[in-house]
Amino acid sequence: MTERPRPTSRICPACDGFASVSITLGGRTRAGHLRTITVHCSKCHGTGTTTRRTIALAGGRA
């Protein structure tokens, strides 16, 4: 008997899978590096995926 494939994880609709980004603040340090901050998606908390929702139907069979 063959195994069923695992359900793929869903991509976060808010960030389209790009969960963490670096944003330049403008300007450079004394060493010449750009000053940046890292921002994470607030919906998926930086993972890029969401969990599958299970919908229970009234009177449906399990």
Rank of each mutant, 00 (worst) to 15 (best):
M1I: 06
M1H: 05
M1A: 05
T2W: 04
T2E: 04
R4N: 11
R4I: 14
R4L: 14
P5F: 11
P5Y: 10
P5H: 12
P7V: 12
T8M: 06
T8L: 08
T8G: 05
T8F: 01
S9Q: 13
S9G: 08
S9T: 09
R10M: 10
R10H: 03
R10G: 00
I11Q: 01
C12A: 07
P13H: 09
C15N: 08
C15T: 07
D16R: 13
G17P: 03
G17Q: 05
G17H: 07
F18K: 13
F18Y: 11
F18P: 01
A19P: 05
A19F: 05
A19V: 04
A19H: 07
S20L: 04
S20R: 13
V21K: 02
S22R: 08
S22V: 01
S22Y: 02
S22P: 00
I23V: 14
T24Q: 00
T24G: 00
L25E: 09
G26E: 06
G26S: 04
T29Y: 02
T29P: 01
R30N: 05
A31R: 13
A31N: 10
A31E: 14
A31T: 14
A31M: 09
A31C: 08
G32N: 11
H33E: 15
L34N: 13
R35P: 00
T36P: 00
T36D: 07
I37D: 13
I37M: 14
T38K: 12
T38A: 10
T38M: 08
V39M: 11
V39A: 14
H40D: 11
H40Y: 04
C41K: 13
C41Q: 12
C41Y: 14
K43R: 15
C44Y: 09
C44M: 07
H45N: 15
H45V: 10
H45I: 10
G46S: 11
T47F: 02
T47Y: 01
T47L: 01
G48W: 03
T49M: 01
T49V: 07
T50G: 00
T50H: 00
T50I: 14
T51L: 07
R52S: 03
R53N: 07
R53Q: 13
T54I: 15
T54F: 11
I55K: 14
I55V: 15
A56Y: 10
A56W: 05
L57F: 08
L57R: 15
L57C: 06
A58P: 08
A58E: 11
G59H: 06
G59N: 10
G59Q: 05
G59F: 02
G60Y: 12
G60E: 15
G60D: 15
G60H: 15
G60K: 14
R61L: 03
R61W: 00
R61Q: 09
A62F: 09
A62K: 13
A62P: 06
